[in-house]
């Protein structure tokens, strides 16, 4: 496992913990898209079914379980514990616009036409677009709280580090996961506009607000 992969996973974990910590401390989930969080919970659920079929490593198993827990606790905070603070009027992205093409594509383009493999492929395609309801919400309200932007930054950083991980794996192991790489590139592109705003505004101490 190369350094980009480890840093990518840690960045992913940090993003989820930042979000959970923010909701927990402020007892408020305004500005967070519950729909994106449901999609991420669905991504982990459909991808990590191999917890029951394949053992890869202790690291792999522990991280999968932690990711699943974080995703479900976040969804529970938004729709359960702190639902009164959830800004549902601004979380209006139509999920069927994402789910229908993603389901269709995972049946058409996969490594193996088996239920587990189609679900894994579905999770890869879905992850690449799961952040869109959150980005849509920010563009609708025109602003985001600083910790929300740190969350998005580390989530985007995780994607960028995975790209470096794939380049390294291709060089050293000749490993090339076409489905993951193509989806990963698409996913990273979605963060570019946000990265620009993050560097030009948030890192200079300003709140992220759109003109």
């Amino acid at each position: 496992m190369n350094v980009f992969r480890i840093l990518g996973d840690l960045s992913h974990l940090l993003a989820m913990i930042l979000l959970l910590g923010k909701i927990w401390r402020s007892k408020c989930c305004a500005g967070i898209s519950g729909k994106s969080q449901i999609l991420f919970a669905l991504v982990f659920t459909t991808r990590y079914l191999d917890l029951f079929t394949n053992f890869i490593s202790i690291y792999n198993t522990v991280m999968k379980v932690v990711f699943l827990l974080c995703a479900y606790v976040t969804v529970y905070m938004i729709y359960g514990k702190f639902r009164k603070t959830f800004d549902s009027e601004n979380d209006t992205f139509r999920l069927e616009f994402l789910l229908v093409p993603v389901i269709g594509l995972s049946f058409l383009e996969n490594y193996n036409f088996t239920p587990l493999e189609i679900l894994w492929t579905f999770s890869i395609y879905l992850e690449s677009v799961a952040i869109l309801p959150q980005l849509f919400m920010i563009s609708k309200t025109g602003e985001a709280e600083t910790i929300t932007t740190h969350y998005l930054f580390f989530l985007g950083l995780y994607r960028a580090l995975y790209l470096a991980n794939w380049i390294r794996r291709y060089q050293t192991e000749n490993f090339y996961d076409q489905i993951a790489v193509v989806s990963g590139v698409v996913q990273t592109i979605f963060y570019c506009d946000f990265f620009y705003l993050y560097v030009t505004k948030v890192l200079k101490g300003k709140k992220l607000s759109l003109p």
């Binding site: 992969r5 191999d50 490594y111 193996n112 894994w120």
Partner: peptide
Amino acid sequence: VDPSAGHDEL
């Protein structure tokens, strides 16, 4: 990619 070996990435 041979998916029968499992997917090692998260």
